[in-house]
């Protein structure tokens, strides 16, 4: 496999990836020989039931977890062959629960530059990018609302100028208006800068709106992988058909 991966530097490639976790109920398989690849410039949305392994898959891409079996290739190089700091600069991750470091918003936005001994990015411009006013810069970061924190966390990651962005339900705590700002920002970032994003979401409509490609993760495998339009209109597997139907029913109930 490794030969073809080197010849075609996809943004991400998963080759027979397996991951087990040890919990209170013993050893459990979270990812089970998962395969798939993501071309550079793609916005991939990951959908699936809770506990299916979506977040684990994200954390394998920047080596915050290591696959127990198989390989994860990032920009043509296996994750374990990358210098770790360099990999994590290339592959940014934003979590569902934003964590602010002690200090002001400006301190948080300057964090990546400080870690890498570089001049800080323009904090006001970063805030503007995520739809926040520049006067927040000197506010203690812990005083922000959950939605503001999430946007600052995204801006903090973007300040690192990643090539790949991993988003773990980043809009689940935001109101509709704030979620729209983030959606537009990410879509524009991917399309205009030819970057790659992998977006875990439980919001089926969001997955349909923003994705170029969608994977349904269930029982540790990517059971349906298709361009997003096809995924939602003509799913090829029983898993996919059930998921889309359930999403439609949920949408009708919400409407």
């Amino acid at each position: 496999m490794t030969h073809s991966a080197r010849e075609h530097p996809w943004a991400l490639q998963f080759v027979n990836v397996s991951k087990w976790v040890v919990g209170e109920q013993g050893r459990r398989c979270v990812l089970d020989r998962l395969n798939g690849r993501v071309a550079t410039g793609t916005l991939l949305t990951l959908v699936g039931p809770s506990g299916a392994g979506k977040s684990t898959l994200l954390s394998l891409c920047n080596l915050l977890q290591t696959p127990d079996d198989g390989e994860v290739w990032v920009l043509g190089r296996e994750v374990r062959d990358w210098p770790v700091s360099q990999l994590r600069r290339k592959v940014g991750l934003v979590w569902q629960q934003p964590v602010m470091l002690p200090g002001t918003v400006a301190d948080n936005l300057a964090l990546a530059a400080r870690l890498h001994h570089e001049p800080p990015a323009d904090g006001a411009a970063l805030l503007c990018r995520v739809g926040l006013p520049a006067d927040l810069l000197h506010r203690p970061a812990h005083e922000l609302s959950g939605g503001q924190m999430q946007r600052v966390a995204l801006a903090r990651t973007l300040a690192n100028q990643p090539d790949i962005l991993l988003l773990d339900e980043v809009t689940s705590a935001l109101d509709r208006e704030a979620a729209d700002v983030i959606e537009k920002l990410i879509v524009e970032w991917v399309n205009s800068e030819h970057k790659t994003a992998v977006w875990v979401t439980h919001d089926t409509e969001q997955a349909r709106r923003v994705g170029h490609e969608t994977w349904l993760i269930a029982e540790g495998r990517a059971v349906e992988q298709a361009p997003t339009a096809q995924f939602f209109t003509a799913p090829q597997t029983v898993w996919g058909q059930r998921w889309v139907l359930a999403g439609q029913s949920q949408g009708e109930r919400n409407a």
Binding site: R89, A112, H116, T157
Partner: peptide, 15 residues
């Protein structure tokens, strides 16, 4: 949580 944020931004273990 803070440690994970720092690592994900490319911090070294010392940082």
């Amino acid at each position: 949580g803070e440690i994970l944020v720092l690592l994900s931004l490319g911090a070294s273990p010392k940082q």
